[in-house]
Write a protein that binds this DNA or RNA. Sequence first.
DNA 1: ATTACTACTAAACGAGTAC
DNA 2: TGTACTCGTTTAGTAGTAA
Lengths: 229, 229
Amino acid sequence: MSEKHEWRHIFTLLKLAEMGAHRRTAKISTEYLAAKLGASQQTASRYLIELDNRGLIKRTITPEGCLIKITDVGVKELKRLYSTLRFLIEAEYPPSITLEGIVFTGLGEGSYYITKEQYKKQFIERLGFEPYPGTLNLKLTTDYDIKTRSELEAYPAIEIEGFRNENRTFGAVKCYPATIENKVKGALILALRSHYDASVIEIIAPIFLRKHLKLKDGRKVKVEVLTLP
Amino acid sequence: MSEKHEWRHIFTLLKLAEMGAHRRTAKISTEYLAAKLGASQQTASRYLIELDNRGLIKRTITPEGCLIKITDVGVKELKRLYSTLRFLIEAEYPPSITLEGIVFTGLGEGSYYITKEQYKKQFIERLGFEPYPGTLNLKLTTDYDIKTRSELEAYPAIEIEGFRNENRTFGAVKCYPATIENKVKGALILALRSHYDASVIEIIAPIFLRKHLKLKDGRKVKVEVLTLP
DNA sequence: ATTACTACTAAACGAGTAC
DNA sequence: TGTACTCGTTTAGTAGTAA
């Protein structure tokens, strides 16, 4: 399937739909369509041929013009665009935000917390994976990333409840599903401990990220954080 | 304002919005955008320059990428597309349908009915114009037009109530706002009388259409009928 | 790393026209 | 009237590369 420039086709479908061709067979001359598109009759004709070839419309040529009906496939395309827009416009938060930070070695305490049975159980249940026992620490270096991280805190998160054992209390944790380096699915965790400032984020994943992505201290890593609907 | 090919820009705006740039300033490299667009880095760069020039985005260039925020104008563009799609997809009926017919001279009874005070009052109130005292009769010649007309009957219409005077009853009439020959705003009226079959439609307008559009019997006339929400 | 210019190639467009 | 072909022109797209 040729993906390139398919937006021409989507927009042509939209114009055809404005003439009712998504519900009923409509008689539309190439000249008329051309005027609606702001293009020439020849271009309109070509577009219709292309849409037909792609199975987006059903076309019957008559001496008085084309009888055009958008196919189910075509309608589905329009609906997909509609859903995308609805999601973007109606949603309260952007669908994803991207953070970049520098890998550094922490105090090794991530492992201590992550492996607590009460946390682990919730990670598996709410994130869908058992985290590798350790966190990847990223230092945010630009104002943009720090500002973005602080915005993220206001977004809805997957909540991991705190608990207490015989010795001390363990605080609640907020998680955001995330994709690390466009490759590995994991999660960004916030407020696990308080002794890192707002310029540090911690990442967990089902695998050992340092090994899997061949990360060394100082490497810049991109994290795409998904926000929740 | 250059209207041509603004689809590219809308589509690019959509992709930027998917990265959250409609709500917050997002850091997006031309390379990254290019991947999302299925185009080259150079093309993405050019698109961003074009969007910036048109005031659809605000762009700040940094060594790590562009900081991009879709402007209010840009968001408005996306919302307009959204509204159009919502209207098309959620609406029960196509927004307009087009009929073509041949002008013919009727029995002159249109005038008789149209000028009845009880009808006229309702025309003015519900259509917003006082009809010229006479109807333009159009004979539908193709199967398509006749089929379309019959579909139209099921669509919601502006209802003109019937009445009775001392002599007889006058039936209810359905009206659809319409544009005749892409020039004059008037209305198509259905079921005014029963002695014309389904292959005939009657048009009223605030002006004398035959004179204004220089119509003679046998001329083919295009009528764009607007359906109601 | 980036962005974006220049120079070139590929694609789209539309005038003319056949049917 | 219609649609849609050919083909010269215009426009969009990209590789290479500078900053």
